[in-house]
Design a protein around this nucleic acid. Structure first.
Length: 589
DNA sequence: GCCGTTTTCGGCCCGACTGTTTTCAGTCG
């Protein structure tokens, strides 16, 4: 059973408790939800922790849940869970996947109507609502009935938060709305917050904060945004809309003098904020988007903060970069003023995974721009180093001798470009396939033409973890192989990527001086931030590359840097911050 | 049910908004 399934099971237990007696089980509910959160975000399969006897090292898993999970892995089911879930029809859990359906509403409806078929429950409820059967129920009404119908249809169409956007797409939508907001004279400042500010690889909804002393005017202006499908809600200081593209945008307004409190609150993450408030409570301070209350001084009112720095300072912490606000140790370090100095985009001096249009007759896609054009772009970005790593020439269409000649020609082309510039050094690389056998796609004679090669998996993704790990490590063990590109092969919103035995891969890379790539391609962003964090802890070097196939794409570096930051990487963890001599020295280790 | 730089017992974040209600329950973040 995978992590997502296990998390869902724990959530169902929490929901069942909520239905049965929310007050009595309040803290169990919170505990099960916390455990589910942390399992969902775990980069390692829970089954592997179980095998190593390390289940309770996962945050939120204590003695009790650990016992239940052990039973789950040995017997495939858990008596206690079955007891907890008893009496709640499986159909209720199906309805709970629809936004606006919580445990109470879902349970109430399946009970009232005797809905027992999980396969048809959504359609069954829709039919009942259309016939007007929901409105007469106590606690419901005409409006609720309409809302149910709309929630079902939006859920089926994948609107709202049901489908996540990749980061650049979400940024584009957010920019459009920020532009619209700035046209309102009462908007003093408008900023994108939430998961977009924290730079998550995918974003569920867009959160925007506005500083204004006239919130009513701002909210009226917000809902007048032209590309809008409907207003989800609109109150005195917050509003949510659904754009015509089916994306949810949440807005919060606070007075200018309290904008810092709002920035902090609305950036999240939820786990960071909860932990921050618990931390502050121990100092008798109560935090909210409205500011900070000192609980020791009755009727002293609430203190406002115009900047985030002042807000964090008021609770005894140094300012925490948004990318690491996930409650994974940042609060403790901020209290000691010893947060890491995270890598910055301007510290990047080179890009070592780019594809030119040179006709190398590759097995995969060719770039769109020439070596000269790509080099010019690199210089404009202030880079001192560049590495061309087109895909290796197709091995099914060429003899080894032809491959050798193609690479030789490409190299001559690079030397030609290089002779016209002094401001940048160019390395001769390739992106070489690791074949299913673990061998590299081209022979040693051709590999000797290269400074080094980036290696990667482009075929037969369906191998099990052990075989794939063996394959990758064999490919990496070639002396010319220095970088493992897009190490998990994941494509966001498309495929999850293959599994690797990370402890093994990390210790191999450390021992043999191999680097893991953080691929800045918007739908890859691979490594994940969690594995970056592990690599940082194990002192494994990483390199951030754009995998560009055109000059514009070289601007994607910032997304890769964002993932590195989310994984707590510093300049010293990232190889493409090195100058020429130091970098070359590393390639020869 | 989890957790610990005041605690191995006694705590556990904080608020906005909506619909159906005459004071609140449910959902969301």
């Amino acid at each position: 059973m995978g992590n997502l399934e296990i998390a869902k099971l724990l959530r169902n237990v929490a929901a069942a408790y909520t239905i049965k007696d929310e007050r009595k089980f309040h803290f169990q509910i919170v505990a099960y939800q916390k455990a589910a959160d942390s399992i969902e975000n775990s980069p390692t399969q829970l089954q592997d922790y179980y095998k190593d006897g390390k289940l309770d090292t996962v945050a939120g898993i204590g003695i009790s849940i650990k016992g239940h999970l052990e039973e789950l892995f040995t017997k495939g089911k858990v008596k206690y869970f079955e007891w907890a879930l008893e009496g709640v029809p499986p159909t209720a859990f199906v309805l709970m996947d629809i936004p606006s359906f919580g445990p109470k509403t879902a349970y109430r409806l399946v009970e009232e109507f005797g809905l027992t078929n999980p396969g048809t429950v959504i359609k069954d409820l829709k039919d009942l609502a259309q016939k007007g059967k929901v409105a007469p129920l106590k606690g419901f009404g005409e409006k609720s009935q309409k809302d149910i119908l709309r929630a079902i249809s939006e859920f089926k169409e994948g609107k709202g938060k049901t489908t996540r956007m990749v980061l650049p797409y979400a940024s584009e939508i957010a920019d459009g709305i920020i532009d619209h907001l700035r046209k309102c004279p009462d908007v003093a400042d408008a900023r994108v917050l939430g998961s977009l500010r924290r730079c998550l690889p995918t974003v569920g909804d867009i959160d925007i904060a506005v500083a204004s002393n006239n919130p009513t005017s701002v909210l009226d202006h917000f809902v007048s945004y032209p590309h809008i499908e409907r207003v989800i809600e609109k109150g005195k200081e917050t509003s949510s809309i659904l754009t015509s593209g089916g994306k949810q945008v949440d807005l919060m307004v606070q007075p200018i003098e309290n904008f810092g409190s709002l920035l902090q609150h609305f950036t999240g993450s939820k786990n960071h904020n909860v932990a921050l408030r618990e931390f502050s409570l121990r100092k008798n301070l109560s935090l909210s988007e409205h500011g900070i209350k000192d609980l020791t001084r009755k009727n002293s009112g609430i203190q406002h903060y115009s900047s985030e720095e002042k807000f964090y300072q008021a609770i005894g912490l140094s300012w925490i970069p948004p990318e690491i606000r996930e409650n994974t140790g940042e609060i403790e370090l901020a209290a000691k003023n010893s947060l890491p100095k995270l890598i910055k985009t301007r510290e990047i001096l080179g890009d070592f995974h780019i594809h030119s249009s040179f006709p190398i007759e590759p097995s995969h896609d060719l770039g769109k721009n020439t070596i000269g054009e790509m080099t010019k772009k690199a210089i404009s970005l202030g880079y001192k180093l560049l590495g061309f790593s087109e895909h290796n020439p197709s091995i099914s269409k060429h003899t080894p001798e032809e491959i050798y000649k193609l690479i030789e020609l490409r190299n001559k082309n690079i030397e030609h470009v290089l002779s016209g510039t002094k401001s940048i050094r160019i390395l001769k690389l390739l992106e070489t396939d690791i074949l299913p056998t673990g061998k590299l796609a081209i022979d040693n004679k051709s590999l000797r033409l290269l400074d080094f090669t980036v290696v990667s998996i482009h075929s037969v993704f369906s191998m099990d973890k052990e075989s794939m790990t063996k394959r990758v490590l064999m490919g990496l063990s070639h002396p010319k192989a220095k970088v493992l590109a897009h190490p998990t092969g994941r494509l966001l919103n498309d495929r999850p990527g293959y599994e690797l035995d990370w402890p093994k891969v990390l210790s191999f890379c450390k021992k043999y001086h191999k680097a893991l790539e953080i691929n800045a391609w918007p739908t890859r962003l691979d490594l994940s931030d969690q594995i970056v964090r592990q690599a940082v802890e194990q002192k494994v070097k990483m390199i951030i590359n754009t995998d560009s196939h055109a000059v514009d794409q070289m601007d994607n570096m910032k997304y890769g840097v964002a993932i590195a930051r989310r994984g707590w990487a510093q300049k010293s963890d990232i190889l493409n911050t090195l100058d020429y001599n130091k970098f070359i020295k590393w390639t020869k280790l």
